[in-house]
Design a protein around this nucleic acid. Sequence first.
DNA 1: AAGTTAGGCAACCGCTCATTT
DNA 2: GAAATGAGCGGTTGCCTAACT
Length: 369
Amino acid sequence: MGRAPCCDKANVKKGPWSPEEDAKLKSYIEKHGTGGNWIALPQKIGLKRCGKSCRLRWLNYLRPNLKHGGFSEEEDNIICSLYVSIGSRWSVIAAQLPGRTDNDIKNYWNTRLKKKLLGKHRREPRNRGNYNSVKQEIDVNRGSSNDGDSSSLSLLQENGNTTQQQQQPCWPQNINNMPVLPLQVPLPYTNQGPCFNDQDSIKKLLIKLGGRFSGDYYHPTLDGLNLEFSSDGQQIYQEQVHVGSSSAAAACISSTINNNNEVQFAQTDQYSGVHNLVQGQGGNFTPSFEEMVSSSNYPDGLEFLYNEDMIDHRIIESPTTTVTATITTNWGETSTPLYHHHNSIASNYQSQGVTQECALQYFSYPGAQ
DNA sequence: AAGTTAGGCAACCGCTCATTT
DNA sequence: GAAATGAGCGGTTGCCTAACT
């Protein structure tokens, strides 16, 4: 049996709310409350609106103590931190920011913050001051309660100050000092999906959250390359994957061509020195490495971190028949968003018997040792 | 000056989950 | 226990404007 429609779609008004509609809704709710029934509300007030639409209008624009625009640096930090930790659970994030709505945060993230963090601007930010004065007027006409986005102006001006700022990712300055925020809801990692209660599972998850290794990164170019040599004199490929501002390296995947002209891949932790062969004779990868290399699954919501713009490809090709490939990530740097992300994730495993130090050691952060 | 493109944001859609009958 | 109902959520769309060509 299909579900009954919540309202008569044909006789329901859609689109922007008028000041009169806003006034009716606001006045009624302030006097009587919602009555616990949004569906019946519009009929009581005499509004030709869907109950869901009324609810949205009230929650996002009409209810008291709402803030619009003007996100502070602190709010940016909180949003970043929570997004890195829990992904696009906007209602949870909004719960940590009084006066903010999930819709507001979602829009802010999608249209500005994500780009701000990436430092990715296709063009100069436009003059928001001028835009806002016009927008404010329009919003009044359209019935919006938007009070003008004056601090968005400063955000964008600040962002557009220098060419460097436009090109460099600009994570919140103090991101590495940000606290791991106590959440009011359980994290998805701990209450859903697979149970990460063994070292292998945890390692696998942490690898996925911390870096990506893929043959896709190889490009047949020799421009601007630095040649390096492995200990036995073999020239090597090197490919560095920079995420954020760091180039420090802690862990790598290396591959060598042995005497039988077979490529072998190994995963090495540069701090612990642990070296695991992940590919055996005959060119078959171990299942875990295969999955890791072939996976196109980024951490939820963190796809942007792996955007092409954030990756610095360097390939060194040997003119000889012996080649070693190294993919280096920035796991060792403690001032990166990823470190903070790792730290957040690691702390969430404490309840499962994995110490934060242990988890962070896997990422090879020196401070965690 | 006119047309096109991109950014910002309010609002809608459709789904899931919780509660009620 | 199943169906009906409502609330809430995240993703998407559409409109408007500024910027660009």
